[in-house]
C-alpha cells in the first residue's frame, strides 16, 4: 500500500464531518478539490487494501443505552494462548491487546444491554479461573482518535 498526497488529504479530512446530504461524495469532493468519481474510486481502493475499515458512524455506546468497559487480566505466560481464545470467543469483546506489564491482557467489552457486561466478565472469570479487573470510564477528556496520514 502506498498513499499519495491526495489519499492522505482524504483520510485526514474525512475522519469526521462526512456530509449527510443526498450527494455526500460530491460535497466532500468539492472540499478536497476532486471530482465525485475520483473520490469514490480512491475511497474504494483504500477500503479494498485495508487502510480503511469502514466508512460510516462511530457510535457513542452509553448514549445508545449500551454498556462499555475496559478490562484487564494478569494471565500466566503459559496460559496466554488458551485465555486469549476464551476471551476472544465473546462477540462482545471488541478489541484485545497484549501489553507489557503484570496486567498483560487488556480488552474492551461492549454490549447492547449494560447488565450484560457483568455477565460476560463473570463468565470469563469462571471459565479461566482468573480475576477480571473492570475499569469502566468515570470521565472522558478526549475522544479524538484521529490519525494523521
Amino acid at each position: 500500500m502506498s498513499l499519495d498526497e491526495t489519499d492522505r488529504a482524504i483520510i485526514n479530512v474525512l475522519q469526521g464531518g462526512f456530509p449527510i446530504a443526498a450527494r455526500p461524495f460530491a460535497v466532500a469532493a468539492e472540499r478536497l478539490g476532486l471530482t465525485e468519481d475520483d473520490l469514490l474510486a480512491r475511497i474504494t481502493r483504500l477500503r479494498a487494501d485495508g487502510t480503511l475499515t469502514r466508512f460510516g458512524p462511530l457510535w457513542h455506546a452509553e448514549k445508545m443505552g449500551g454498556g462499555l468497559t475496559l478490562t484487564a487480566m494478569k494471565v500466566p505466560a503459559e496460559r496466554y494462548e488458551e485465555v486469549t481464545e476464551i476471551v476472544n470467543s465473546y462477540p462482545e469483546v471488541a478489541h484485545n491487546y497484549a501489553r507489557e506489564h503484570s496486567f498483560n491482557m487488556w480488552f474492551v467489552v461492549a454490549t447492547e444491554r449494560p447488565e450484560r457486561i457483568r455477565e460476560v466478565l463473570d463468565d470469563i472469570e469462571r471459565r479461566t479461573g482468573l480475576a477480571v479487573f473492570d475499569m469502566p470510564k468515570i470521565e472522558e477528556f478526549f475522544v479524538g482518535l484521529r490519525f494523521e496520514a
Binding site: I11, G16, I43, L46, T51, L52
Partner: peptide
Amino acid sequence: GIIRRFGIIVRHHEL
C-alpha cells in the same frame, strides 16, 4: 451525539 463521528474509520496500524 449518539453518532460521535461520521466518516472514515482507519486502521491505524496500516497507516
